[in-house]
Design a protein around this nucleic acid. Structure first.
Length: 117
DNA sequence: CTTTTGACAGCGT
DNA sequence: CACGCTGCCAAAA
C-alpha cells in the first residue's frame, strides 16, 4: 500500500477531537516524522472533510485567509481564543491531550508509514 | 531528472 | 512586540 507521509498526516488530523487543536509541529512530532513545514505542505492538499481548522501555527494563529474561515468553527466548537482576538487560539489550553488509546492509534499510523524507500 | 515553493518554528537582533 | 535568517524536506513545477 502506498502509504505516504501526506496520508499519514491526514490520518493523524482525523484523530484530533472537536474542541481541541494541535500545531503543525505537534502533528510531525506525534507522527515521529517530518517537520512543521512538511505537515503544512501536506495540509495544502488536504481533502474535503478533513478538520483542517484544528491544525494551527505554534502561536495559535493561521495564515490570514484560513483564519477567517476557521474562526467560525472555533467559536462553534468552543475553542478558547486568546484575548479579544477571535482568530487566535489560546495555547496550551486548546491543545489536544491524546489518551493512551489515542497514542496507540498514533503509533499504528507511524508504523504503517513507509519511509519513502 | 533538478529547482523552487511553502497551510512552519525557533532563535537572534 | 516585530522583523530577519536558517533549517527542514515533501510537493509541485
Amino acid at each position: 500500500m502506498g502509504y505516504e507521509f501526506t496520508q499519514a498526516v491526514y490520518d493523524v488530523v482525523t484523530l484530533v477531537p472537536a474542541g481541541t487543536a494541535v500545531t503543525y509541529g505537534d502533528v510531525a512530532e506525534l507522527l515521529g516524522a517530518g517537520g512543521p513545514r512538511q505537515v503544512g505542505a501536506a495540509m495544502s492538499t488536504a481533502p474535503a472533510g478533513l478538520p483542517w481548522w484544528r491544525v494551527v501555527r505554534a502561536d495559535g494563529t493561521l495564515r490570514e485567509d484560513l483564519a477567517e474561515r476557521a474562526a467560525g468553527r472555533w467559536r462553534a466548537e468552543g475553542l478558547p481564543c486568546r484575548g479579544g482576538d477571535p482568530e487566535r487560539l489560546r495555547f496550551p489550553e486548546a491543545r489536544w491531550q491524546p489518551s493512551e488509546a489515542d497514542f496507540e492509534a498514533l503509533d499504528a499510523i507511524a508504523a504503517r508509514l513507509i519511509p519513502k524507500v
